[in-house]
Amino acid sequence: MALQERRLDDEHAILLPEDAGRQGLEPDVRRCVSIDAEAHCVAEWFLDRKKAGYEWSQMACLYPEHWIGGKVAQILARHGVPIDMAKDNRNRVSVKRVAVRFLSMHSAKGLEFPCVAIAGLGLLGRHGETVEECVRLTYVGVTRATHEALLTYSSESALVQRLIA
């Protein structure tokens, strides 16, 4: 996985998953018109990954805030994408359910999945977090993917501007 190197005053690298030893495709970054549209995009991406031969349990959906996760979960269910919500399991990922692992970006640290979708990136930083904090959290999310990643946003933010620049 590779994103072009971006630097802020040559002090902090923006997102360099290749430094973490990842070998997958460059993350697919898509702009959508709303959080609901992001959720539909994520659902279709998961369905395409399933058709490509991945198992549901090889996929994860990450979100920055629980209300975003709730909206995405509803729409994934409408598309027939089975999900295992970590927040319903005391923030643990169940290995027994054959489903897409569904968890917050904050609780994903240390986990890996072949396919990871992250919805709601444009809303990162709206509670006063610095761009650097948002970059670090996004880096954690993106590097959970070992093969393919989808990043969606529907709101412009300093983070999004750095991702698409």
Rank of each mutant, 00 (worst) to 15 (best):
Q58I: 11
A60N: 15
L62E: 13
Y63E: 15
P64E: 12
P64C: 13
P64S: 11
E65C: 04
G70Y: 01
G70T: 14
K71Q: 12
V72S: 04
A73H: 04
Q74G: 09
I75Y: 00
I75S: 09
L76D: 09
R78K: 04
R78T: 03
H79F: 12
H79E: 11
G80I: 14
V81G: 03
V81L: 03
P82K: 00
P82M: 01
I83L: 08
A86M: 06
A86R: 03
N89E: 13
N91E: 06
V93C: 01
S94N: 07
V95I: 13
V95T: 07
V95A: 00
K96Q: 10
V98S: 14
V98P: 06
A99L: 09
A99S: 12
R101E: 14
F102R: 09
F102C: 07
L103C: 10
S104N: 13
K109I: 09
G110D: 07
G110M: 13
L111E: 03
L111V: 05
E112P: 00
C115S: 15
C115M: 08
V116T: 05
A119R: 03
L121K: 01
G122A: 09
L123R: 14
L123F: 04
G125W: 09
R126T: 14
H127I: 14
G128W: 14
G128F: 15
E129V: 02
T130I: 11
V131R: 08
V131C: 11
V131I: 08
V131F: 12
E133P: 10
E133C: 05
E133T: 15
C134P: 12
R136W: 10
L137T: 04
T138G: 05
Y139Q: 10
V140T: 11
V140R: 02
G141W: 05
G141M: 10
G141R: 05
V142I: 15
A145Y: 04
A145T: 05
H147A: 14
E148Y: 13
S155I: 04
S155R: 15
S157F: 02
A158T: 11
A158F: 07
L159V: 14
L159D: 06
Q161I: 10
Q161W: 00
